[in-house]
């Protein structure tokens, strides 16, 4: 029975390929990402077992009930079985939704301490722009009329607003290690999506909306930001950098940038 063997082989190869973890997540850089990984492992284990059992059963049935000219017993079903497997799958799926909701609420529902640093991230076709408020913590007013990429004003900061004088605009997203940061996500043209693999987080940037996203990275280093919502012909090259710096180094950098603005 060629097909039975083929299904077993396929199931075994697929399971082995997943177990190999040759192409896998990058190492996590915060506790949330580590939690994500262990929750994913749980899921992949459960799904993998179901996958393997179901495919193995399918293959086994095909082999076991191959046509040998025997008489088949007429049966139209079994209500007790229907109830059992309905209840079991319902329980399994509902059980999955609870830890998943808890993990989700860590990202989107936990309140951030009011002292957390805020950074504005602006997407445009096909680049990322970052803005830090001045020491007053206030961002300068912006308007589409003042947008001028050539003059280094992708945000369209209004020169008439004193709060904007000390804003620092940067191409890379630099944040201090180990400190929570509140990203304010904006887009000025089409929908983009902020995705850093090491953070295990993704969030769309929608024009006309300000979407808050809390991130925190413990491990200094450079990580790629990959746009993850189709934004036009340059979507595949909309690469940004998340640079996680030791706090002291970050403070020094920000101070230096502010001074350069004066």
């Amino acid at each position: 029975m060629l097909f039975a063997g083929l299904i077993w082989l396929t199931a075994a190869v697929v399971a082995a390929a997943f177990a190999m973890k040759r192409w896998w997540f990058p190492p996590p850089i915060n506790t949330y990402a580590a939690n994500f990984d262990s929750y994913f492992s749980l899921n992949i284990a459960v799904a993998g077992i179901i996958f393997f059992l179901a495919q193995a059963a399918l293959g086994w049935f095909i082999w076991r009930f191959r046509n040998q000219g025997r008489r088949v017993r007429h049966t139209e079903g079994n209500n007790r079985l229907e109830v059992v497997w309905t209840a079991v799958t319902l329980a399994l799926f509902l059980a999955a939704s609870v830890p998943s909701a808890v993990l989700w609420s860590r990202v989107h529902l936990d309140l951030l301490s009011p002292t957390a640093m805020s950074v504005e991230l602006l997407g445009q076709q096909f680049a990322w722009n970052v803005r830090y408020p001045g020491p007053d913590g206030r961002y300068g007013r912006t308007s589409a009329r003042f947008v001028n990429d050539a003059a280094g004003n992708p945000f369209g900061i209004d020169d008439g607003d004193p709060a904007g004088k000390d804003d620092v605009v940067s191409g890379a997203l630099r944040i201090p290690a180990g400190k929570p940061v509140l990203l304010r996500l904006h887009s000025r043209d089409v929908i983009h999506s902020f995705f850093v693999r090491e953070l295990r987080v993704k969030q769309d940037l929608v024009p006309g909306m300000e979407i808050p996203l809390k991130i925190e990275a413990d491990k200094p280093g450079e990580y790629e930001i990959a746009c993850s919502e189709l934004c036009g012909l340059g979507h595949h090259q909309m690469r940004g950098l998340l640079i996680v710096m030791p706090p002291a180094q970050f403070d020094a950098w920000l101070r230096q940038q502010r001074e350069a603005r004066q």
């Binding site: 799904a47 996958f51 799926f93 939704s97 989700w104 999506s193 295990r200 993704k202």
Partner: peptide, 25 residues
């Protein structure tokens, strides 16, 4: 039946917002 099982099980990941945070798109 075989591919329906395989494709359905990965839906289990994408249906959970916490995991979709990574896998979306």
């Amino acid at each position: 039946v075989s591919v329906f099982v395989s494709g359905g099980l990965t839906g289990l990941f994408l249906g959970q917002p916490a995991l979709d945070l990574y896998f979306h798109d």
